[in-house]
Write a protein that binds this DNA or RNA. Sequence first.
DNA 1: TAAACTTGTTTAATTTTTTAACAATCTCTA
DNA 2: TAGAGATTGTTAAAAAATTAAACAAGTTTA
Lengths: 213, 213
Amino acid sequence: MPRNDNISMSVIKRMPRYYRFLGKLKDDGIIRISSCELSKMMGFTASQIRQDLNCFGGFGQQGYGYNVEQLYEEIGNILGVNTALNVILVGAGNLGHAIASHMEFERRGFKLIGAFDENPNLIGGKIKDTEIYSISSLEDFCNHHKPEVAIICVPTNPAASIVERLYNSGIRGFWNYSHYDILSVYPDVIVENVHLSDSLLTLSYQLKNANKD
Amino acid sequence: MPRNDNISMSVIKRMPRYYRFLGKLKDDGIIRISSCELSKMMGFTASQIRQDLNCFGGFGQQGYGYNVEQLYEEIGNILGVNTALNVILVGAGNLGHAIASHMEFERRGFKLIGAFDENPNLIGGKIKDTEIYSISSLEDFCNHHKPEVAIICVPTNPAASIVERLYNSGIRGFWNYSHYDILSVYPDVIVENVHLSDSLLTLSYQLKNANKD
DNA sequence: TAAACTTGTTTAATTTTTTAACAATCTCTA
DNA sequence: TAGAGATTGTTAAAAAATTAAACAAGTTTA
């Protein structure tokens, strides 16, 4: 039960990181942890950790700290890993294929139910247990299976029109790897833009300007 | 020539986005653009755009706006796309392979000079024109070819020790796709953590809490 | 030439994010 | 079981980032 309905994006973006570190602690058999210890591991301040967590509830205990397993579960629930949304992959080339097979969707609240490409060599194949269909059958498939989320792994050029088709088919969540920016054209849509090339350019800038400071 | 030596990370992280949009405009044959027009396309305010760009120099002209091609070039220079750093890929599995073949390194200031994996089925193979070597030859290769940057696409478990080996071999830039966080253990290192799973969990949170607002 | 634009820059206001501080309360040991 | 030590939840303050407003100076265009 959220204490604060107006949680900032900065806090939300830190939650998966907490989840990751707590999972690690849990696997290592650590039972309890204090915000102070956690702060040293994670590079946040203890103050920020306590404040972040308290956006969602008081999960700790004075004098004790946090129970690792309980906090892990709580954050998992907050992030929604226990309720699965149906997701489709659009663009099953190199990158799309790798992401779909690399990502453990089930552990993160998603279920991959279909993949699409226009390349006849790919159509009919599989990614893990998921079939690859022709991209022309997108609408039919969506009408039947009602996926909620799409992973966009197509080139920049067709991206805009494919996003439009998906939107018209009822999809409201996008995990976008294309260079096309899914903007606020659609106000009721939730997008995570990954933009790997932006990340690489940020790295380039930092490396090439590191000595100039 | 930077006007401001103390450019905030927020500004830096916006630069690749400007670069992307300007590239698009250039490809579309647009000659000039004003901060106002750009603001409508990009979703920033015109004021912020002018302020961001002026961290690096005055690239526009009163009454005219910005020359698209010139500004594109300038931002490219700022980001360092014209000076190549040697990069190696560590972990040539599904994800590593896809990223290395998907990313156009040459257009972004990098040159892929080697890939490494421990899987004998991969060793000896190629990613585009780059050979895949045994991970045991990492140190030898680094001594010979002095790569500056490494892309980390190995599982969480070996990540820490591999990063240490790379650090000891002189690598100071990391593009990290592993779940291991390359922390400030190494103060003189520059890291871009990608963390795809964090992005997916952020999407999950937003989708599953969208109606609760 | 003059009106209409648009930048670069400064200043101020606002919002967001981070840090600090501490009372309340729990744990743990002797 | 009492008391020292630890640690949270929460509030308040500080810092940083963003947005907005304003305008002189220079450019374009009719």
